[in-house]
């Protein structure tokens, strides 16, 4: 909700978040780079370039895995939401770690020949017709390109420029990148392992991502938002007295949109459930200081108008609502974003 764009709007949470993530990454790299060579004590050690490439590669895989854990974990248990808050910084960090991995490989395996190393990357192995010996580097390059695109477009400027739906779709690239990384590892280093510790960790990591997503989908299916029944252009939401002060009740409308009906100072107002920032679920937010606060990144809206407080300009659609006995109902068609609607008194 910025009026002018700055690289990062720092606040304490972001500093702490980045600090913790950085601590995890530094711990990984330090132990891998400086402690494990001592543990291994090979007669003729692994070349430092390869050792380093493995450290950064394994770190990037673990980071990606954790990034993909965060979404489903937050859906299953909302206490994980703080991990979601600044996930993009972690994503950008991952991109740098992955680039470092690629750099070590490029300057080792693809260097020292009479050809340009970038050209060598493309022509050295062309066994595209086979699984074993497939140029698995191609999957790594694809994943790296995805990560760079995501990192470059991670800023809110791009979010606004591309519009949230397009931005969200673009950032689903992370899943393709992850699948590519899995293929990259499976057809590469895993083909050469005698010791299978890494194999177990790798397969466990990839399965955990798939498993958590399946669990979150199942969880949402059981506990997720329900479809409201429509009659004559009005959709039934719930018993008006059941909505707690400062909270909302979410229903799915026949057209697939979600509406959030909030109770504020004993009166009901309805706005779109999708936050103008990144489609966060506003109905799972709270009213803080008279403003609906998004659970994802804290954008705020006046529940009666769908407008962010000045100087911010974000707006979400509002819905006209009425009471039918004790039942609250909303009109199927949303009002244009930012349209004020008179709140409805909760029956005693």
């Amino acid at each position: 909700m910025s009026v002018k764009y700055v690289p990062v709007q720092w606040n304490r949470s972001k500093w702490v978040y980045d600090g913790i993530m950085l601590a995890a990454v530094v711990a990984f790299l330090y132990l891998f780079l400086y402690v494990t060579p001592e543990l291994l004590s090979h007669e003729n050690p692994i070349n430092p370039q390869v050792h380093n490439a493995r450290a950064f590669g394994a770190c990037a895989f673990l980071m990606l895995t954790v990034i993909l854990w965060i979404g489903p974990l937050a859906r299953i248990d909302r206490r994980f939401l703080p991990l979601l808050y600044n996930r993009r910084h972690f994503g950008v960090m991952t991109t740098f770690v992955a680039i470092t991995h690629a750099g070590y490989i490029l300057n080792w395996y693809f260097a020292f020949s009479s050809s340009d190393k970038y050209a060598a990357l493309l022509f050295a192995n062309t066994s595209y017709g086979q699984l074993a010996g497939f140029p698995f580097e191609a999957f790594g390059i694809f994943a790296l390109v995805c990560l760079v695109i995501l990192a470059v477009t991670s800023h809110d400027f791009w979010l606004k420029f591309l519009t949230p739906p397009v931005w969200k779709a673009l950032h689903a690239l992370i899943y393709f990148a992850y699948v590519a990384v899995v293929a990259h590892v499976a057809l590469g280093i895993m083909q050469d392992q005698q010791n299978h510790t890494f194999t177990v960790i790798f397969i466990g990591g990839a399965l955990s991502v798939a498993g958590l997503h399946a669990w979150a989908a199942w969880h949402e299916d059981r506990n997720g938002d329900r479809l409201g029944t429509e009659e004559g252009g009005w959709v039934d939401i719930c018993d008006a007295r059941k909505i707690e002060e400062g909270r909302a009740h979410i229903k799915v409308l026949p057209n697939g949109e979600r509406v959030a009906v909030f109770r504020h100072e004993g009166k009901l107002s309805a706005i779109s459930n999708a936050c103008a920032h990144q489609n966060g679920p506003l109905g799972e937010g709270r009213i803080i200081d008279c403003l609906v606060t998004c659970p994802w990144h804290g954008f705020q809206y006046d529940v009666r108008t769908g407008r962010s407080p000045a100087p911010f300009t974000e707006m979400v659609p509002t819905y006209t609502l009425r009471l039918s006995g004790n039942r609250v109902q909303v009109q199927v068609e949303a009002n244009p974003p930012g349209t004020p609607v008179d709140p409805v008194e909760v029956p005693a």
Binding site: N44, H51, R54, A58, V66
Partner: peptide, 16 residues
Amino acid sequence: LFAAAALLIGGTQDAP
């Protein structure tokens, strides 16, 4: 988790 993964992955690499 990151520390343990580093030691496990890094510390079990095959001898070249």
